[in-house]
Simulated assay, not measured.
Amino acid sequence: MIKAVLVMNTQGKPRLAKFYEFQPVEQQQEAIRNVFSVLCSRPEHVSNFVDAESFFGPDSRLVYKHFATLYFVFIFDSSENELAMLDLIQVFVETLDKCFRNVCELDIVFNYSKLHTILDEIILGGQVLETSSTEVMKAIEEIARCFLFPFWFFTWSFFFT
Rank of each mutant, 00 (worst) to 15 (best):
Val93Arg: 01
Asp107Val: 01
Pro150Lys: 10
Val136Leu: 09
Glu94Arg: 03
Ile108Asn: 05
Val91Lys: 00
Leu83Trp: 08
Thr134Asn: 14
Ser47Ile: 02
Leu83Thr: 04
Arg42Cys: 05
Tyr71Asn: 04
Val38Asp: 03
Pro43Ile: 02
Ser133Leu: 03
Val91Asp: 01
Gln23Cys: 04
Thr134Lys: 11
Arg101Val: 13
Gln29Met: 07
Ala4Lys: 05
Phe19Glu: 12
Phe56His: 02
Ser37Val: 09
Phe36Met: 02
Thr69Lys: 06
Glu142Pro: 05
Leu96Ala: 11
Asp97Lys: 05
Trp156Glu: 15
Tyr20Gln: 11
Ile2Tyr: 00
Leu124Ile: 09
Phe110Glu: 01
His116Lys: 08
Asn102Thr: 13
Asp77Ala: 06
Glu21Asn: 10
Ser157Ile: 12
Ile89Tyr: 00
Glu80Ala: 02
Ser60Pro: 12
Lys18Tyr: 10
Leu115Ala: 11
Thr69Asn: 08
Glu30Cys: 13
Pro24Tyr: 13
Glu135Gly: 12
Phe92Lys: 07
Phe151Tyr: 10
Phe151Cys: 14
Val63Tyr: 02
Glu26Ala: 13
Gln29Lys: 04
Trp156Arg: 13
Met137Cys: 15
Ile2Met: 08
Ile123Leu: 06
Phe149Gly: 04
Ile32Leu: 07
Thr155Arg: 14
Leu106Glu: 01
Lys65Leu: 01
Leu96Ser: 07
Glu21Ile: 15
Leu86Ile: 05
Leu88Ile: 02
Glu135Lys: 15
Arg33Lys: 15
Ile143Val: 12
Glu135Tyr: 09
Ser132Pro: 04
Glu135Asp: 13
